[in-house]
C-alpha cells in the first residue's frame, strides 16, 4: 500500500505532446479511475506510472519517492492488461507464481499465497490448466490473481473488462471492487466506460485530449461537471446541449446550456422552454427514453419513469426543467 503522486506530468511522442500536465495526489488505498474517450492519453498516463513509458516532464512518485527513472520491476506495482497478457506456456499456477519465484519467495510460501489467491478468485479447479483452456472471465481472474499474490504497493488496471461480454463485465466489476476493498491496495484503473468509472471509483479523473478535465468523486462530477466535455461524457444517455440563445440564457456570456435527460419533463407545447416533436420512444420497462426533434434539427433525450404516458410519434411537446438543474457553459467549454 502506498500513495501515488502525479506532479504536472507531461508526455511527448516525438514532437506531439499527448499528456499536457496532469497532477493528482492518490491516498493510500484509494481507488482512482481514469476515464476518457479513446486516444485521450489515459492508457499512456497509466503506463507512465507503471514505468512502461518514460516521463517527458514532471514527476511520478510512489510512496513519496520519485520513480521517473525506476524500471518497472523495481516499482513494486502489479498491472492487469486489457488482453490479460497471461504467459501462454505456463499453467495458471505458474502464471500466478512467476513474480514470486523471481522475487525468490520460498516455495511453501508461494504455494500458500497462490492457493489463497486462487480461493479468493474461485480458480482452485483450474490451477493446472493452461490459459488457452480457460474462458475469458477465468483468464481475467488469473490476471487478477497474478496481481494480488505479489501484494504490491499499487494495482494498475488497463481496461481490464473491455474484452468481456456485458454480463460478465458487470459481475467482474463487482468482484474487482470487492477485492480492492478487502485488500485495501491503492488502485489506478483506466477505462473508457463511464459506468465502470461511476461504480468503481472513489475519485475519478476525466481526461480529454491529454488534459485532466476534472478530478472528483463520481457523484460530484456527475452533478457538477466542470466543463462541457465532462457533462457530455459522463452520464448515459448523454446530457442534452442547447444553444443558450435559444433558451434566452445568453445574457451572462453563456454559449450553451446542458440539461440531463432525467431533469427534463414534458409539458404543453406553449409552456415549455423549448418545443420538440416526438420522434421515437424507447420503453425500457423501469424507465422510458423519449427522443424529441427540436426546431433546429437536434435531438433531445428525455428520461421518464416507466409508468408515465408516452406521447404519440409526431406530437408537438414542450420541454421544461427546473432552473437549478441547468448547466451553463462558456464558448470555450468551461462552466459558467
Amino acid at each position: 500500500m502506498a500513495t501515488i503522486t502525479l506532479d504536472n506530468v507531461h508526455k511527448k511522442f516525438g514532437d506531439t505532446e499527448v499528456i499536457h500536465g496532469v497532477s493528482i495526489e492518490i491516498a493510500e488505498g484509494e481507488f482512482i479511475v481514469i476515464v476518457g474517450p479513446s486516444g485521450c492519453g489515459k492508457s499512456t498516463l497509466l503506463r507512465m506510472v507503471a514505468g512502461l513509458e518514460t516521463v517527458t516532464a514532471g514527476e511520478v512518485r510512489i510512496a513519496g519517492a520519485r520513480v521517473n527513472e525506476t524500471e518497472p520491476m523495481d516499482r513494486d506495482i502489479a498491472m492487469v492488461f486489457q488482453n490479460y497478457a497471461l504467459y501462454p506456456h505456463m499453467s495458471v499456477f505458474d502464471n500466478m507464481a512467476y513474480g514470486l519465484k523471481i522475487a525468490r519467495v520460498p516455495q511453501p510460501e508461494i504455494r500458500d499465497r497462490v492457493a489463497a489467491a486462487a480461493e479468493m478468485l474461485q480458480l482452485e479447479a483450474f490451477l493446472n490448466r493452461k490459459p488457452r483452456e480457460l474462458s475469458g472471465g477465468q483468464r481475467q481472474r488469473v490476471a487478477m490473481g497474478r496481481a494480488i499474490v505479489r501484494k504490491p504497493k499499487a494495482f494498475l488496471f488497463d481496461e481490464p473488462l473491455s474484452n468481456l461480454d456485458a454480463k460478465l463485465r458487470v459481475q467482474m466489476r463487482l468482484e474487482i471492487k470487492d477485492l480492492q476493498k478487502e485488500l485495501g491496495i491503492t488502485s489506478l484503473y483506466v477505462t473508457h466506460d463511464q459506468v465502470e468509472a461511476m461504480t468503481l471509483a472513489d475519485r475519478m479523473i476525466v481526461m480529454n485530449e491529454g488534459v485532466a478535465e476534472q478530478v472528483g468523486r463520481p457523484l460530484d462530477v456527475y452533478s457538477n461537471p466542470g466543463t462541457e466535455f465532462v457533462a457530455g461524457f459522463i452520464g448515459s444517455p448523454a446530457t442534452n446541449f442547447l444553444s443558450a440563445e435559444a433558451v434566452g440564457e445568453s445574457g451572462r456570456g453563456a454559449a450553451k446550456l446542458g440539461i440531463r435527460p432525467e431533469h427534463a419533463r414534458l409539458c404543453k407545447p406553449e409552456s415549455g422552454f423549448v418545443r420538440g416533436r416526438m420522434t421515437y420512444a424507447e420503453a425500457l420497462g423501469a424507465e422510458t427514453l423519449l427522443h424529441l426533434r427540436l426546431p433546429d434539427g437536434a435531438l433531445f433525450t428525455l428520461r421518464q419513469d416507466g409508468g408515465g404516458s408516452i406521447p404519440h410519434e409526431g406530437d408537438d411537446c414542450g420541454i421544461i426543467w427546473e432552473e437549478r438543474n441547468q448547466l451553463l457553459f462558456l464558448p470555450d467549454g468551461g462552466r459558467l
Binding site: 514505468g51 506495482i77 488482453n83 522475487a103
Partner: peptide
Amino acid sequence: PRSVIEAAAIDGARFWKRFWT
C-alpha cells in the same frame, strides 16, 4: 505480444530472465 513481455517486466523479470522464461 508486447503486453506479455511487459507483464513479465512488471512481475520483476529483467531482460535475460524474461528471455529464458
